[in-house]
Each structure stands twice: as C-alpha cells, then as structure tokens.
C-alpha cells in the first residue's frame, strides 16, 4: 500500500467532533472574537470617550435586556415591517427579475429603473415616504422594500441572463418547448444566483428596517437605541446595536449555509 492510499483511508474515516471543530476554523473564530473584545475593552479603559462603555458593561446590559424581555419585545416589533417588506420584495423582485431576463421588452422598460434604484442612495426617499404614508407600519414596510427590492430584482435578472446558452440549446435540440426550457433548464440553472440575491436583499432589508425606525418614528430596536441614548444609558444602547447587528449577521449566515447546502454540493465537506 502506498502512502497515498493510507492518506485516502484516513480521510474517509469519520472525524471526531474535535477534529471537525478544528477543521471548520472554530478556534480561529473564537480567537477573532476574543481579539475584538479585548480591543474594545482596552479602548474603553483608555477612557477615549465617556460615551464608550466597556465590553463587559455592554455584555451585562445585553444580558439584562434579554432577561427582562425588552430586547425580545423590541425585536418582534422590528421584525414586523421587515418580514412584510421582504416577502413583498421577494415576490415582486424575483418575478420582475425573471420577466426582465426572459423578455427583452420588459427588460427595456423596467431595467433602467432597477439600475437607478440599485446605484442611487434610496435611503434619501425614506423621509419622503413619511409624507404620504405617515409614521406607521406602511412607511416602514415601504422603506424595507425600497432597499431590498432592487438587489433582489437585479440578481434574479442577472441569474436568468447568466444561464449557459448551450444548456438552453441542448433543451431545444431535444425539441423542448419554451415552457420546458424555462421550467426545466433556465429556472433551475438560475436559482443559485437568485438565492444569493435573496441573501443580499435580506441584508439590505435589515438596513431599511433599522433606518426606518431611526428616521421615521422610534419603535422596536430603533426606539431602544434612541431611548437609551437620550438618557445617556450608553451600555444599553451599544448592547441593542450589537444585538441587531449580530441578529442580521446570523440570519444572513444561516441563509448562506442553506445556499451552500442547496446549490453547491462540491463545497460540502
């Protein structure tokens, strides 16, 4: 038996939990978080700004808000416009993206709008929206949609456009109808990139939801941030911000994990 064979056999053996943790880079992630916490702590201890709480104080505040339920309650309120807005963006965005990718007339009429929306600072429109829809839920939903829709639509469009023409030709050569081409070739081939677009759209949606709460009326997470800032309760304010950033990252990370599982078997271990 050569050394290569031995090597191969070792690889097929089921690795223990510890080995798997090592291989996934978990120790590095822990070191990375520890480094961040340390820098935070040292910065705070150097007294560079009175409004900069120590890392430990922030964690204590985070724990306190988790325990008394105020954080959960705020998150639930923030989630409401986010979820409604995202559902709308996904349905409309994916639909229009596919339509633009398949039909050149739809592309001609709608693509410039989405290109503009994606490159322009759409956040500037949020105050305008409150003119019309007031300071309630509707405005916040619109804010989420404005930020997440363009990314989702543009990615769906590009996904359809990126489908390999030879695959479509293959389907045609076996006398596949247009309908079969779309349902059996184009949509499956485009779905990984579309899903990636959804992930980016969700990240933008979070931005929209937070911005809406900060700009329109403080509710949910935005309310917690504004309130604790106004009473100079900085540890709590930081804890809220850390919590929302962390939550957004976890959601996006989860989507990324699902994406890897669904579409890229070669990347699975």
């Amino acid at each position: 038996m050569t050394s290569m064979d031995i090597h191969r056999m070792r690889n097929t053996a089921d690795p223990g939990l510890f080995t798997r943790a090592l291989r996934s880079g978990l120790p590095w992630k822990i070191a990375s978080v520890a480094l961040f916490a340390l820098i935070w702590q040292l910065t705070a201890m150097s007294g560079f700004n009175f409004a900069f709480p120590s890392f430990t104080a922030m964690i204590a505040a985070l724990w306190e808000m988790l325990a008394d339920g105020s954080l959960i309650a705020a998150f639930l309120r923030t989630m409401e416009p986010l979820v409604i807005g995202l559902v709308f963006s996904i349905v409309v965005g994916v639909g229009s993206g596919i339509a633009m990718g398949l039909r050149s007339d739809v592309e001609w009429i709608t693509l410039p709008i989405f290109i503009t929306m994606q490159a322009a600072p759409m956040a500037a429109l949020i105050p305008l929206v409150t003119f019309v829809y007031g300071i309630g839920l509707a405005s916040k939903v619109v804010a989420v949609v404005m930020l997440s829709l363009p990314v989702i639509a543009m990615n769906s469009y590009k996904a359809v456009r990126n489908v390999s023409p030879s695959l479509v030709d293959m389907c045609r050569s076996y006398t596949g109808t247009r309908r079969q081409q779309i349902t059996q070739i184009i949509l499956p081939a485009a779905s990984p990139m579309m899903f990636a677009g959804l992930r980016l759209g969700v990240a933008e949606g979070f931005s929209g939801a937070v911005l809406a709460e900060l700009l329109i009326t403080p509710t949910g997470v935005g309310d917690l941030i504004t309130y604790h800032r106004s009473i100079a309760n900085f540890a709590h304010m930081y804890a809220t911000i850390v919590a929302i950033v962390l939550f957004a990252i976890i959601v996006v990370g989860l989507l990324q994990w699902v994406e890897a599982r669904l579409f890229r078997p070669e990347r699975r271990e």
């Binding site: 990240a203 979070f206 931005s207 939801a209 911005l211 941030i225 304010m237 950033v245 990252i249």
Partner: peptide
C-alpha cells in the same frame, strides 16, 4: 453585510 445604519447613532455620540 451588517446593517451599518444602526452604527450611526454610535458615531453621533
């Protein structure tokens, strides 16, 4: 991919 807008209040203080 974080909602960076949430950090602006921190920068403000």
């Amino acid at each position: 991919s974080a909602p960076l807008s949430a950090l602006v209040p921190v920068f403000m203080i």
